[in-house]
Amino acid sequence: MASAPPLSELQGWLAAVWTTREGVDAALKSPAGEKARRWISELRPPSARDRLAVYSDAYFLRLLESLGSEFPAVKRALGEDNFRKLIADYLSRHHSDSPNLSDLGSKLAEFSAAHALSKRFPYLGDLCRLEWEVLSALYTDRLPPLDPAVFSRLSPADWEKAALVFDPTLSLLEVSWPVDRLWAQRSSPAKAARCVWRTPRPGKLAVWRDDEWVRVESLEQEAFLTLESLMRGTSLPAACAASGAEADELKSWFAAWAKEGLIKGLR
């Protein structure tokens, strides 16, 4: 019998076998598969092939299930079979290189936007992008609530330079399709999900986390641009002047953002 392989080589062969998309039988025909099989004990049934297959089968199913739970609206919109195909293709291109399964979907939006399924489901890239933003908001720490006293402490000169601090969970998204509607329906029965939008309907979305969960809301163009400008650090007076909005409108935007906990302080 040949001398035992170094641990690193053995792990490399096995990782190659277990991540082969075509399954364990195809993998065992490869050089890595042939080498790996040689070192699997067959003192008792089942065979080495069947023992290796337990891990091969579990690999894809585990990652499919994980991505399904992190992209529920995508899964619902595509249906089980299409979602499975998308993820199989994705994993062929992007294996996991992180200890945290939550990182696995980080490239799914970019990948799916270029995937053949996006011809039938043109909103696919936008929906993946939205769900990735939702996941990011879920795993971002919030700042403490706004102390209203910070406003009263500002001198008129300070007001000229004051910029708002927003909650770190807040992100803004420009989409070509109204994917926020699909996201809102993510837990409804899949039958109702078949959506047949043919022409883009661009929209602006805000994603953030409140006390309970992640929120996704549609914003008007002017409010979106003003919020975007403020998040970039533009001073309050400059952002308000550039918005072109009436004072009442500005007031209502700021009241809503404060009420939703998006504004966390002044800088």
Partner: peptide, 19 residues
């Protein structure tokens, strides 16, 4: 759980060797 840069997110058995 993985090797050669690939994480399989599974609890994979080791050979029980001195190495």
């Amino acid at each position: 759980t993985g090797a050669h840069g690939k994480n399989l997110h599974d609890l994979l058995p080791l050979p029980y060797t001195e190495e």
